[in-house]
Amino acid sequence: MTRYDSLVDSVGHTPLVGLPSLSPSPEVRLWAKLEDQNPTGSIKDRAALAMIEKAETEGRLTPGATILEPTSGNTGISLAMVASMRGYRLVCVMPENTSEERRQLLRMWGAEIIASPAAGGSNEAVRVAKGLALEHPDWVMLYQYGNPANAEAHYRGTAPEIHADLPEITHFVGGLGTTGTLMGVGRYFREHQPDVRIVAAEPRYGELVYGLRNLDEGFVPELYDESLIDSRFSVGPRDAVRRVRELIAAEGVFAGISTGAILHAALAQANKCVKAGERADICFVVCDGGWKYLSTGAYEGTLDEAEDRLDGQLWA
């Protein structure tokens, strides 16, 4: 069934595609879950819709309400689309060093943008948003980093879809940001097929992003539960860019840079399985397409040039 009553109703139900060229052997196979095929082009449509619907059910969101969210990208775009369809105003707090494409997309769907300082990255955006929430008690902050509906969207949607399409799955590899995808998918497989290993790929940025004034200002999303993950890889921009280019060259999949980081972890896992002589079906997430990142310069020139251009940018 591919007919839906409206765009919002079509969130999820994304394809799972095999990667015959990047898979190391017939026994160790890679599969890509194409979340870029959601309505606004990213996996965040799932979380945004789930958080808004939960707030509506709980009576926190009423017609004409204002939604506030710290977001420098896809979540904001997803929230903006759903909010505009349902008549809510959306205010996004985002670091000033995020790409112009994202700002234009947010404005296009009617969102308002409040800038937070580049230094400190999303930490600063979260802090600014929490301050605004105190000043405007009538605004509704959905707060993707701590909202259980974020993980729930993947527990109810992403994970069962993967399980139905790939019952022989051995590993799931996702990006670690709000941790919503990994927490939801992790909990689903812990309950339904506990031998599936859950692998996290965490983007490693330039130093600017880690420029805290003291360590106590660090941030771990409230959703994060270490017991739902089995390994966690830190992936820098060079490896992410290299893999995102391999993905388009070998398989024709045009993905955003964070997907390159996830693929890097998936390939590391695949190589471990090959060395151990184990069968593996490794599913990883294509979070979004590359369109929003063309201006970052990640897709042209040498890897050195791309790495230099991404330094200091929030590329995932």
Binding site: T98, G121, S122, G177, T178, Y205, L215, G218
Partner: peptide
């Protein structure tokens, strides 16, 4: 690889390994 998943502080090291220490941050585009 995050040592919390590889044996914590007892994670074995060998010559040529690279150790990276980073503060936990909210990171990037969410």
């Amino acid at each position: 690889e995050d040592i919390r998943f590889t044996g914590g502080l007892q994670t074995a090291l060998s010559d040529g390994d690279t150790v990276v220490i980073l503060p936990a941050v909210a990171g990037g585009a969410r």
